[in-house]
Simulated assay, not measured.
Amino acid sequence: MKKLSVLFAAVMMVVSVGMAKAQKIATLDVIGVLNAMPEKKKADTDLKAFLDAKQAEIKKKADAGQAKLKQYTEEAPKKTAEENKAREAELGKMQEEIQQMNEKAQKDFAAKQEAAYEPIEKKLNDAVSKVAKANGYEYVMDANSSAFLFRSGPDATPAVKKELGIQ
């Protein structure tokens, strides 16, 4: 059984190498290109500012809740059971509000991130398509992929960066 699986792996390797030689394949440093795009840098800055603002808002609410918890804990022995129960409910409601704010901030961030990156991805994909057609590449693969065991052949990264007008 072990020999059969080794034989199968060897056959698949030979077949895939044969197919790769028959087709023109290029690699592309997608992360490098994206990080060099000014649009991505601006989107990252805007998203960080948005996230920082949301986190500050949540922290302010959480700090207010902590202060109230401390105050209520100190005053609890002097209050009636009914008052303490009402205060407990109020703290529970505050905690729930903070959780909801957190969830809403995550959803808002994801939506804003998607909206910000969509045109950037489209621009990159258009440039890759244009470069691939111009150079006759049938496949352009991400050079950062861990699926590569061996990498050879043309690198489309410089051509895509040139198409995008970045260094």
Results as ranks from 00 to 15, higher is better:
74 E>T: 13
140 V>M: 06
130 K>E: 15
24 K>C: 05
8 F>A: 14
108 D>C: 04
98 I>C: 00
60 K>D: 13
86 A>Q: 13
153 G>R: 06
67 A>D: 09
119 P>I: 09
22 A>K: 11
74 E>C: 00
92 G>K: 01
28 L>Q: 06
72 Y>C: 04
134 A>L: 08
117 Y>R: 08
44 D>V: 07
137 Y>Q: 02
56 A>M: 09
76 A>F: 00
37 M>E: 05
141 M>Q: 09
85 K>E: 05
106 Q>Y: 09
128 V>F: 00
65 G>M: 01
25 I>S: 06
165 G>T: 03
25 I>W: 06
142 D>R: 01
86 A>K: 13
103 E>H: 10
69 L>F: 15
7 L>A: 14
165 G>H: 10
20 A>G: 09
144 N>W: 08
130 K>Y: 06
5 S>M: 14
53 A>D: 14
86 A>H: 03
135 N>Y: 11
81 A>I: 01
66 Q>S: 11
77 P>L: 07
124 L>R: 05
137 Y>R: 05
44 D>I: 06
65 G>R: 04
35 N>I: 06
84 N>P: 03
133 K>C: 03
110 A>M: 13
35 N>C: 00
1 M>V: 14
71 Q>I: 01
80 T>A: 08
167 Q>C: 10
130 K>V: 07
86 A>T: 06
79 K>N: 13
66 Q>D: 12
80 T>G: 15
149 L>G: 15
125 N>E: 11
151 R>W: 00
155 D>M: 02
136 G>S: 08
81 A>Y: 05
101 M>S: 06
46 D>F: 03
163 E>D: 07
160 V>Y: 04
15 V>A: 13
74 E>W: 03
119 P>D: 05
29 D>N: 10
151 R>T: 15
23 Q>M: 13
29 D>L: 02
12 M>F: 12
8 F>R: 12
123 K>D: 01
51 L>S: 12
124 L>N: 06
23 Q>D: 12
125 N>D: 15
47 L>F: 05
77 P>E: 02
166 I>S: 02
166 I>T: 08
113 Q>L: 10
119 P>V: 10
3 K>A: 13
34 L>R: 03
162 K>P: 09
132 A>K: 07
8 F>G: 10
7 L>Q: 10
59 K>N: 11
61 K>E: 14
150 F>G: 06
45 T>N: 15
85 K>A: 09
121 E>Q: 15
152 S>D: 12
148 F>G: 01
60 K>N: 10
6 V>S: 11
159 A>G: 03
107 K>P: 02
56 A>C: 08
136 G>W: 08
87 R>N: 12
141 M>L: 15
65 G>C: 00
75 E>Y: 05
143 A>M: 11
52 D>M: 10
131 V>S: 04
99 Q>P: 02
